[in-house]
Nucleic acid binder design. Structure first.
Lengths: 192, 192
DNA sequence: ATTTTCGGAGTGAATATTCATTCCGCACGA
DNA sequence: TCGTGCGGAATGAATATTCACTCCGAAAAT
């Protein structure tokens, strides 16, 4: 097994275990076994478990952000862009339940609070997150309600994450129609 | 100390520690110390740690459900009732950050998934949750979007929980005005 | 009224388990 | 042969849970 493959195996094993059983149910020994490597080997690739988890999240986050911009017409109307991004995101989660469940757990943990702190409070440096720009533009152009960015995020993301979670847990069967209706409802929530 | 007081001391200590430091940071020894009892005593009141945590959640849930109905006029217009319940809930969370943080952690864990499963899937038995009735009535009377109950819950609760969390973490300062605006936005999301 | 007995709540040191992390010998490629 | 990457048993810290004992108050016996 090539060196970089092994790294990927470890990340993938961690993703699966944490997604399925939570942080509690993902001891290093189990990750190693599922990855098909020795426990000690993990420490050749990651300084410790925290670093492993953070790097895993970072990789997923970057990949998703990049993916969201596929076929994203910057010149389209604001509402259309919002719907495009949101449906793409929701679809991604539904198609990748393991990744979703990991991300959800990560965000609902001390890790996630730190992440949000950097992201929200961090001075408006370069930010590859397309949502932020979208919402800020919407506020400026008086298309979106004049509320703090954090609240707008809550209104747009809160339902998306909740619906994705309930779909994956089998509490609702999201089909294409329902998915679009949900995103539309989110838009109704933030639009002026 | 009377017998029931001791039980309450234990529950309160667990609430504080879990709210402040997560499930990880609340070992039985620490709960016992904060409650001012011996570690073994806890096992006289609760079969094990899981039971303790579940009973704590159940008590909070019941208390909140009861409190929400204070001054709740069943005969008011639907929208007004929704606003009443939602603002009361959001206010409660903001005024009781420890309880909120515990509840949030509980819901975002295997415990919470089990809870939701019972609650959503459970045949429509008696349900003291006033929200459920409200939404179902809204759908029937064509005031609320015709979406599955789970999706409506996501649209209404998702943002509320997210906003409460961000307020408590200090990412936004929710005042009375902002609170009402947020609830109004949630209504915009679910209304037809 | 005084003493004795008894039951069960309370305790916390001891135990058993679970983990992250380390370490050392092995195997394989150079 | 040398050295590097690897595995997985060993380690030690942290934890939930147990259990043998103490203690106290309330009955029962005197």
């Amino acid at each position: 097994m090539a060196i970089s493959e092994k790294r990927q195996e470890i990340l993938h094993a961690a993703l699966e275990l944490i997604a399925e059983h939570g942080f509690h149910g993902a001891p290093i020994a189990a990750i190693a076994e599922r990855a098909g490597v020795g426990a000690g080997t993990i420490y050749r690739y990651f300084e410790n478990k925290d670093v492993l988890i953070n790097e895993l999240f970072q990789e997923l986050h970057d990949r998703i952000c990049t993916g969201l911009l596929e076929g994203y017409g910057t010149d389209r109307p604001l509402r259309e862009r919002f719907v495009h991004l949101s449906t793409a995101l929701l679809r991604y989660f539904i198609d990748n339940p393991l990744e979703f469940r990991f991300i959800e757990q990560y965000l609902n943990s001390p890790y996630g609070n730190a992440f949000r702190r950097v992201r929200l409070m961090g001075a408006g440096e370069e930010d590859d997150d397309p949502y932020r720009h979208l919402l800020e533009e919407g506020v400026a152009r008086r298309i979106v309600k004049d509320l703090p960015l954090v609240v707008l995020f809550a209104l747009a993301f809160g339902p998306l994450l909740a619906v994705a979670r309930d779909h994956i847990l089998g509490f609702v069967a999201l089909n294409e129609v329902l998915l679009v209706q949900t995103v539309q409802a989110c838009w109704d929530g933030i639009k002026r």
